[in-house]
Structure formats: structure tokens, C-alpha cells
């Protein structure tokens, strides 16, 4: 039988019980009287039976878990590219950049301060006003009126400010030490209230011995700072804060003003870093003789001066070839004792 679309649609709807009672009766009448219609109806019914009897497939047993996993992935993916997420991420990035820039600026500022403190002119309050340690203020120091007696051609000119709560004892010890060093004739001293000033003009060797002999006294100082003047009168001096006796001796022992200034500048940087480092990690290294930053920085190590058993001076001047000339070079050192009470 040749398929008739209209008849097939009628028979298909008849199979699915989608006809009105009247239409259904009409189809039944047609099939009863027309064998071709009956055969076509049977063909379509058998065909539907075939598809209706197809076994139902079952979903994978882990479908629910797969769905949960898929949902988690969806959630993660949706969290990342949302507009809010992007703007928050961009904000975070901008904040990080801002913090980084601020950190760089702060670092540059700190370095700038270090450089400035090294090369800047001494404030009116004098060296002591820059000493970090000790409770004093610049007002206590008063203006620095003392000037070196003598300016050496190739030597060292500086001012050592020492703050101590035991001014009388320290002053007594210093006076005796100066006397024992044979420098009495070369020293001018003034006493004014809370301040003792000793202006010393001597050979490098003698001044160096004096400084070395003060090392045992250093623990009584609340602060110690050394100002090294430049030979050019207008140039700013170098200030070394929190200076140690070894550093002072080392600076004094240099063979020329330039060498003293260079050494002082190195110590100034080192001491400043030590002061500003958290926990002062560097300071113990500075104050240690061996294995210290002295070695690392290849800076000159101070040595105690004075005659040895053979009568020869034990002090070591940096350039052995010009040792004699250097020993004789004049050094001006002004020692200022200040009462820190």
C-alpha cells in the first residue's frame, strides 16, 4: 500500500488515542471495511511496538557525583570572571602597586637621609645634637665655640663629643691620661658647668695613644660622636655617631686628612645602618674585633699604640714607608665631655 500522509496522520493519532470519539469511530469503520487501511494500521502499530520495547538505558552510576563536581567547577569559574571580582582584583593590584611604590620611595628617603647626614653641614647645636643615644638635647650643649689650636697640613682635625653621667670621674681620668701621654703642654682645657673641653694638638702617634687609652673608659659614655673636619674650610665635616674607641683610633691613625675622612665616612654609614636596623643586628658585629664588619668592609683595624718591650713604638701607622712622617704629622683633636644627667 502506498503511504497516504493524511491517512497515516489519522492512523497515528488513532494509535495514540488522540482522536475525538467520532473520529475514532470513523477510523475503526474504515479499517473494518478497507483491508489496506487495516494493514497500514497494523504496520504502524508494529513499528511503534518496536520502538516502545527498546530497552531503557541507565545513566552512569556516578552521575550525581559528576553533577556535584561540575557545579563546583562552575562556581569556581563564575567567581573568577565576574565583574565585581575583576574590579576587586584590579583594586588589589593597584593597592599592591601603591604599596610597592611607597616602599621604594621610603627606601630612597632613608638612603637620602643617610647621605644627607653624612655630607650635610653640622647644625648650630654642634656634633652632640646629632648623637642618637643619650637623653641630652642640643640646648644642653650650647654653641660650639672651641676651635682647634692648630690645623695640620696632612693630619687630622676633629672633635670628639662624649656624654657621660659620670662627668667628674671621667674628666679626672681623662686629665690623668693626657698627663701620662705627655700631651699636657699641648692641651688647652676649659671647664664650664656641665661641659669639659680639651683641645689637643699633638703628633698623630701621641693622639692615637691617648685615644687608645680611652677605650676602657668608653662603657661610661652614654653617647660618643666624632666630627672630622675637612681640609677645605667651607666643606661640611663628616660626623660619625655612636663611634667606638677602635673606630676613633682608626680614623686618627690615617695618614692623611682625606684618608681620615674616607674612613670616617665609612664608619658613619655603618653606624647609621646599625642604628636603624631592627634589633641593631649590625651593632654587635661593629663592636666585635674579629669576624666583624671591619673585615667585611676591609676597613682599617685600630691597634693599641705605645712602646713595646724593645722600646719601639707598637702603634702601626698605615703606610710603613712614611711611618716616620706620619708619626710626626700634627693632629688636632678636641675632646668635649658633656654631662648627660
Amino acid at each position: 500500500m502506498k503511504p497516504n500522509p493524511n491517512l497515516d496522520e489519522l492512523l497515528s493519532s488513532f494509535m495514540d488515542d488522540q482522536l475525538s470519539p467520532r473520529q475514532r469511530t470513523e477510523v475503526q469503520r474504515l479499517a473494518a471495511h478497507d483491508p489496506q487501511v487495516a494493514r497500514r494500521l497494523r504496520q504502524l502499530q508494529n513499528c511503534r511496538t518496536l520502538f516502545n520495547s527498546l530497552p531503557a538505558a541507565k545513566a552512569p552510576s556516578d552521575l550525581l557525583e559528576q553533577i556535584k563536581a561540575s557545579l563546583e567547577r562552575h562556581t569556581l569559574l563564575q567567581e573568577q570572571p565576574t565583574a565585581g571580582g575583576r574590579s576587586f582584583g584590579a583594586w588589589q593590584l593597584a593597592f599592591r602597586r601603591f604599596v610597592s611604590a611607597a616602599a621604594v620611595i621610603a627606601l630612597v628617603g632613608v638612603l637620602g637621609m643617610v647621605v644627607y647626614q653624612i655630607v650635610s653641614p653640622i647644625p648650630p647645636g654642634g656634633v652632640g645634637s646629632r648623637v642618637a643615644q643619650g637623653p641630652s638635647s642640643p640646648a644642653q650643649l650650647g654653641p660650639m665655640t672651641a676651635t682647634p689650636i692648630l690645623v695640620a697640613d696632612a693630619g687630622f682635625t676633629g672633635r670628639l663629643e662624649l656624654r657621660t653621667a659620670k662627668l667628674v670621674q671621667v674628666d679626672t681620668f681623662l686629665g690623668r691620661t693626657i698627663e701620662n701621654s705627655g700631651l699636657s703642654s699641648r692641651v688647652e682645657s676649659t671647664v664650664s658647668g656641665n661641659q669639659r673641653v680639651y683641645r689637643i694638638a699633638g703628633t698623630r702617634a701621641s693622639v692615637n695613644r691617648l685615644v687608645a687609652s680611652l677605650s676602657g673608659l668608653w662603657q661610661n659614655f652614654d653617647s660618643a660622636a666624632l666630627q672630622v673636619d675637612r681640609s677645605e674650610g667651607s666643606a661640611a665635616p663628616v660626623l660619625v655617631e655612636a663611634i667606638t674607641p677602635e673606630q676613633t683610633a682608626s680614623i686618627v691613625a690615617q695618614g692623611s686628612t682625606k684618608a681620615s675622612l674616607d674612613t670616617a665616612a665609612n664608619y658613619a654609614i655603618m653606624n647609621h645602618m646599625a642604628k636603624n636596623m631592627p634589633g641593631n643586628e649590625i651593632r654587635p658585629l661593629i663592636q666585635t674585633d674579629s669576624g666583624s664588619l671591619f673585615a667585611a668592609a676591609n676597613l682599617p683595624q685600630p691597634r693599641e699604640t705605645g712602646p713595646d718591650n724593645t722600646g719601639n713604638p707598637k702603634s702601626e701607622i698605615r703606610n710603613p714607608k712614611s711611618k716616620e712622617a706620619q708619626d710626626k704629622a700634627l693632629v688636632n683633636l678636641t675632646i668635649v665631655l658633656l654631662n648627660s644627667r
Partner: peptide, 20 residues
Amino acid sequence: VLSDDRVADPAVLAQSHELC
């Protein structure tokens, strides 16, 4: 199934994997 003179048995059809 395609015959027009008999009615197919669904149970028999379902058992034939190849027919399915």
C-alpha cells in the same frame, strides 16, 4: 515487525539486541 498480517510481540522484540 514490518508484516501487515500479524501483531509483533514486544517481549520477543526486546530480547533481540541486534533488532534493537
